[in-house]
Design a protein around this nucleic acid. Structure first.
Ligand SMILES: NC(=O)c1ccc[n+]([C@@H]2O[C@H](COP(=O)([O-])OP(=O)(O)OC[C@H]3O[C@@H](n4cnc5c(N)ncnc54)[C@H](O)[C@@H]3O)[C@@H](O)[C@H]2O)c1
Ligand SMILES: NC(=O)c1ccc[n+]([C@@H]2O[C@H](COP(=O)([O-])OP(=O)(O)OC[C@H]3O[C@@H](n4cnc5c(N)ncnc54)[C@H](O)[C@@H]3O)[C@@H](O)[C@H]2O)c1
Lengths: 220, 220
DNA sequence: CGTTTGTTGTGAATTCATTCACAATATAAC
DNA sequence: GTTATATTGTGAATGAATTCACAACAAACG
C-alpha cells in the first residue's frame, strides 16, 4: 500500500463526508478526481484495487464508499495522540479544537518545564519523565514532536522506547529510525513523518524565484 | 525539475552547511546518501543532472556544491514572507526566530482583527485590508495562510490577486488554483503547498493501526 | 423493447524516478 | 613509474504509479 494512495483515500473520505453533508448520495469518478486533483481513471483504479465497485451508470454510492474506506483506513475513532514539547507549536496544537471533529484527541502534553506552560487548553501537561509510564499505561501509539531541534533525536528515542509507533515531527531536522543506532534492532516498526516548514518555504522560494522565471513550459 | 529532486537539493545544501561547519572539505556520494536517506547512486545522478562534478577519487568539494546549489536553488537571501491569519499557528510562526538562520524573514502579519493579536514578536501586524497595498509595494511573492478553514479559499484568491506567487497553506482544506474559478486565466502561476496536519495524523493512525498489524512484509 | 448515452472497470501502454552495473579515472601506495 | 584502490559518472534495466483506451454494461429515453 502506497503512501500516496493512502493519502488519496483519506482525501476521498474527507470529501465524501462533505458531499454527504450537502445531501448528495452518489458521485462519479470525475467529481472526485476534479475535487482532489487527480485523473478520474486514477480514482476508478484506486477503488478497483480496493474492490469498491460502483454502478455502471449512476457512479458510486457515497455511504458505501465511506463505510468501506473506514474499514480500509482502520479508523474506529477517536484516535489518541500525545504532544511532546509544549512550546509555541505544541500549545497551538493542543488548543486546536477541530481535531475532535476529525476523530483525533490529544490526551496529554509533556515538557521539561511543565510549570512554564500556560494551561489554556483542556489537555493535561506532565513532566517529560512521566511520559514512558503514561504511554505504557494508556497504550498510546502516536505522538507529536515539538521540542527544539537539538532535543528532537533524543526525544524520538525516548518515545520509541516508551512504545510510540507513529511520530509526527515538527523539528527542522529530518528524523529517521536508525538515525541514532541501537533502535533498529527493536522489532516493532515506527513510522515517522517530518513536517519541515523551512524546507517547504525554501521550496516555494525556489518555485517563485527560479522555476517560474524560466520559460514556463520548461519549468516544473 | 521534479519536486522530490528539489527537496533533495535543499536537504543536501542544509547538510553540507553542517558538514562545512564541522570542518569537512569534501564528501562522497554515500555520505550524503546515508545522511538524507537515499541511495548513493541517486546522489550522483542528481549531481550529474545539474552538471556538478566531483573528483574521481576524492569525492565532491563541499564549497563548490554549496555554491552551485545556491545558484540552482536561486537563493540570494533573505527571502521575505507574509503571514495571513495571526491566530495560534500564525503567531507561532511569527515568533519563530530560527527562520532568520535559514534566510527566511517574516515581514508582516495580516488579520481581520489585528487589535486582538498579541504583538510579542517583532513582526508588525496589519489589517487584512492593507495586504494588497503592502504586497504590491514590497513585491512580496510568498505568503502563509493560517486563517480558519472557512476563510482559506477566499484568502487565497485575495493573495493571488495581490501578487503572491507561492503559498504555504495550513488550513485543513486542500487549496489549489482553479478551486474557485476566474483565477486560472490570470497568466502568472501560483504554487501552493498544503500542510495538512490532520491528514498527516490520519496517515500515521493508518500505519499504526492497519499496516503494521498485517504481516509486516506485506504492509507498506 | 430497442437504441442511445454515460460511466465503470481494467488490461495494456506509458511515463518517470530510481537503482544497477560497470567503465573511466584520479589518487594513493609502494 | 607501476599497480592497486576507491569513487565518480552514466547508459541500461527495473519498477512503480499513472494514464490510456475501450469493452461491458446499467440506466434513460423514445
Ligand atoms: N514555531 C515555529 O513556527 C516553528 C517553525 C518551524 C519549525 N519549528 C520547529 O518546531 C519545534 C518546536 O518549535 P517551537 O517554536 O514550538 O519551540 P519552543 O521553544 O516554543 O518550544 C519548545 C518546547 O519544548 C520544551 N522542551 C525542551 N526540551 C525538551 C525535552 N527534552 N523534552 C520535552 N520538552 C522539551 C521546552 O520547554 C519548550 O516548551 C522546533 O524544533 C522548531 O525547530 C517551529
Ligand atoms: N492550531 C492548530 O494546531 C492547527 C492544526 C491543524 C490545522 N490548523 C489550521 O490552521 C488554520 C489556523 O489555525 P489556528 O489554530 O491558528 O486558528 P485561530 O483561530 O487561532 O487563528 C485564525 C486567525 O485568523 C484570523 N482571521 C479570520 N478570518 C480572517 C480573514 N478573512 N483574513 C485574515 N485573518 C482572518 C482570526 O482573527 C484569527 O486570528 C486553520 O485553518 C486550521 O484549520 C490549525
Amino acid at each position: 500500500m502506497n503512501k500516496e494512495l493512502i493519502l488519496r483515500l483519506s482525501k476521498y473520505k474527507r470529501l465524501l463526508f462533505k458531499l454527504k453533508a450537502l445531501g448528495l448520495e452518489r458521485v462519479f469518478s470525475n467529481n472526485l478526481g476534479d475535487a482532489i486533483g487527480v485523473a478520474p481513471s486514477l480514482v476508478r483504479k484506486d477503488f478497483s484495487v480496493l474492490s469498491l465497485s460502483g454502478n455502471k451508470r449512476g457512479g458510486y454510492d457515497i455511504d458505501m464508499l465511506i463505510e468501506k474506506l473506514d474499514i480500509v483506513l482502520g479508523r474506529d475513532k477517536p484516535q489518541e495522540v500525545i504532544v511532546v514539547g509544549c512550546g509555541r507549536i505544541g500549545t497551538a496544537l493542543m488548543q486546536y479544537e477541530e481535531f475532535r471533529n476529525e476523530g483525533i484527541k490529544i490526551i496529554a502534553g509533556f515538557d521539561v518545564s511543565p510549570e512554564n506552560v500556560s494551561k489554556t487548553s483542556g489537555v493535561p501537561i506532565y513532566h517529560i519523565k512521566e511520559m514512558k509510564d503514561f504511554v505504557e499505561k494508556n497504550g498510546t501509539k502516536v505522538g507529536i514532536i515539538a521540542v527544539p531541534d537539538s532535543e528532537a533525536a533524543a526525544t524520538l528515542d525516548m518515545m520509541i522506547e516508551s512504545g510510540i509507533r507513529g511520530v509526527l515531527n515538527f523539528a527542522t531536522i529530518e528524523l529517521r529510525i536508525n538515525n541514532r543506532g541501537e533502535i533498529d534492532n527493536e522489532e516493532q516498526p515506527c513510522t515517522i513523518h517530518n513536517i519541515n516548514i523551512c524546507l517547504e518555504l525554501e521550496h516555494l522560494f525556489y518555485q517563485v524565484n527560479v522555476a517560474n522565471e524560466m520559460e514556463p513550459e520548461k519549468a516544473e
